[in-house]
Design a protein around this nucleic acid. Sequence first.
DNA 1: AGTAATTACGTAGAACGTAATGATA
DNA 2: TATCATTACGTTCTACGTAATTACT
Lengths: 311, 311
Amino acid sequence: MKLQQLRYLVEVYKQGLNVSEAAEKLHTSQPGISKQIRLLEDELGVQVFVRNGKRVVDVTAPGREILRISDRILREAQNLKRVAEEFVNEEEGSLVIATTHTQARYALPPTIQEFLKRYPKVKLSIKQGSPTQICEQVVAGEADIAIATEGIDLFPELAMLDCYQWNRSVIVPDHHPLLDLRGQVTLADVAQYPIITYDFAFAGRSKINRAFETARLTPNVVLTAIDTDVIKTYVGLGLGIGIIASMAYDRYRDEGLFAIDASHLFEPSTTRIGIRRDAYLRGYAYSFIQGFAPALTRKVVEQAMGQSEED
Amino acid sequence: MKLQQLRYLVEVYKQGLNVSEAAEKLHTSQPGISKQIRLLEDELGVQVFVRNGKRVVDVTAPGREILRISDRILREAQNLKRVAEEFVNEEEGSLVIATTHTQARYALPPTIQEFLKRYPKVKLSIKQGSPTQICEQVVAGEADIAIATEGIDLFPELAMLDCYQWNRSVIVPDHHPLLDLRGQVTLADVAQYPIITYDFAFAGRSKINRAFETARLTPNVVLTAIDTDVIKTYVGLGLGIGIIASMAYDRYRDEGLFAIDASHLFEPSTTRIGIRRDAYLRGYAYSFIQGFAPALTRKVVEQAMGQSEED
DNA sequence: AGTAATTACGTAGAACGTAATGATA
DNA sequence: TATCATTACGTTCTACGTAATTACT
């Protein structure tokens, strides 16, 4: 049994049982993969894949177990490499953050700025996606850390940690009637105007819906976006009023738009970070997390990952 | 990185940083190991072992982490092989039980008899030792299942499951004065005679001590053994009275000895089985466990191992 | 027909063993 | 001096690529 053979297995599976694509992805030849998989199957005495003549068409029952374990082994091998890297150079490496537009644009900049100054040699990259996509990326090992606000409780592989709570604001163009009610805006007032807000998969959209439902109001959502900047643009064009994360409004930058605090209208949302429990995090990753949420010290994070018993 | 290299690392560590012994154990040449370890260290860019000139004298800080992860990887590789074996032939394989003399001699026989009849092709072996040794064997992967009564709560790698409770009896030779008190024996009565019982590391010996302590009595323990049969022998010779597990007394087999129930004198003990949480158990292993403790179905055991979320 | 996997075969490389050397206690 | 690890070197085996073949859609 060789680690490469396991890599081949898993990659063929990931590529939808296509040996050729797996070969491409792994920069090797397709006959090589074919042969190594057969060798492994011979060694184990069990078929991993079901073949219809010469096509790989399915995974056998033992194959499913074998793939699961192989995946774990490869992950640990990955961790092992990272441990080594950590000790070779604590300041160098890479860190992949998967997050939503709102976080990337409004919550993360100061943290990232600090981080880049502190760890100039670390290659930091940000991947955007919906909360679900983000978590999937972390689960798949394509990202190290997920930062999102919603829909991220369904991944048992991930440890989730609360970062901070935030509220919403209603943004309106200049001279909007809601501005006259300043301080006393109700949900009913808001429901009178066409609404532009986040896409359903995103940042606490469900909290917005729930608030209206509870008040037995039907909001007229005319446009949804995954992106606060898009929402602002259309609010600026007078197509409706926006409901956005308060932190996404800046009095100076967002000229011609005005924010009305709506923390009394909608439940606050909690932004969380998610990490694979079985991942090995580099030291600077812990540093990044604490930079973003000071309460999340290395100890706290490790405990949440279930690694505390070792230290 | 190759699985073999990891195997070499771990074996050198296990052999007390002795490369030659590791080579012997793995049936390969010592230069081979030396070279492969260096190759791996080069690849990782980190020393795993501290060398004093040409001697391996210690493990580096990263080395400790690397050894830990390597161990996990090798374990999983082991599991992978077992999965394959399971599917090749459900009825064939091996099962190693680590247990104490008392369990092996008095509690396990019916279960084992049944098991051998049901799975004639499985190579069953029993290793004896103290509760601590037993658990260490399971932790080290030298045994699959630990069965013991005491001192087995200190291994976080193991899942422990209760099997059954048992009480103690006092055994005495014929015509012993205690027999006249039948039914009303007290701790004070027992403390009047020289006592022969289990070694301290064993089967609930601490419960016996605690009972006397609580009653502010000092028992006169003249002999300890790890083995009920030894205890019986010396009781038969008139050297004292025995305190043993009730199940270890058989009225017909133990001619000349008489048992006095002592369940009111000592707390009952619970016999448990222990399994490595990250081990893959063969189907017949679950069957064995349930044969021994009917309440421990496969589901219950898997849940205790923390593997239930997958199925 | 076109796509995809296996077989056949040759080559470059790696793992391993033997023997010799160097270092440590 | 004896033990133990590394270096040197040669052989065998194996992983991998190219090309040809076979099977499936």
